[in-house]
Write a protein that binds this DNA or RNA. Sequence first.
DNA 1: TTCTTATGCTACGTTTTTAGTAGCGTCAAT
DNA 2: ATTGACGCTACTAAAAACGTAGCATAAGAA
Lengths: 110, 110
Amino acid sequence: MTRPAKAVRGSTTGRPIMVLLDLAGQRWTLRILWELQAGPETFRGLQTRCGGISPTVLNTRLKSLRDAGLVEAGPNGYVLTPDGEALGQHLLALDAWAQGWADRRDPRLP
Amino acid sequence: MTRPAKAVRGSTTGRPIMVLLDLAGQRWTLRILWELQAGPETFRGLQTRCGGISPTVLNTRLKSLRDAGLVEAGPNGYVLTPDGEALGQHLLALDAWAQGWADRRDPRLP
DNA sequence: TTCTTATGCTACGTTTTTAGTAGCGTCAAT
DNA sequence: ATTGACGCTACTAAAAACGTAGCATAAGAA
């Protein structure tokens, strides 16, 4: 066992995708990445952009994201790392897809 | 206001991507899509594949996913819809990326 | 200097979500 | 008739998230 890979919520495999799905499965994680994708932002800036996320959660998410090497603290606030940017590109792709997805499903549904 | 777009957790915009991020931000949602990506699966099958997710949550997730038009109930259990498959492809892309991501970050970290 | 203003963040009580286990009703095969 | 698997609901306990208040620090204006 060369890489213990620290068991992750909902999965003992340690497969990277599982780690990622686990991370993404926590509330606000993806949203924070999404907002940072638009540029650096301060703690309080993120708070308002995320529509009043509680500071407790925001802080723990930022910790997780920094541990994951996706976000880091810069001079102008928090920024995406190169890896974070790469993931952000995937989110952009999802954005494009989601557009069509929404249009496709019955537009006159509640 | 042509499409009320039913305010979504953490966002009042109703932008499709927000709806998606919201959905994905719930525990197990992405994991379920991931498992279904591998093929149709029964309720109990999903339960075991997801490592003992409680039936309560699995059921509410499946409901959300069906409402979202990503999953449907077929004769052999639950299946991804075309939209679900498309999303699954994005997950596959993420899988590939996550591989490199994991390799890139310090491999001898706890 | 003193006062304001903004920052990142912690404390803590309340609410919401998830977990965990038990079991019901249905159906098909034995 | 009984057994087994199925989809799923009920219910309580535990964990996560919320919401508000506030602290400590630092930079700028008065």
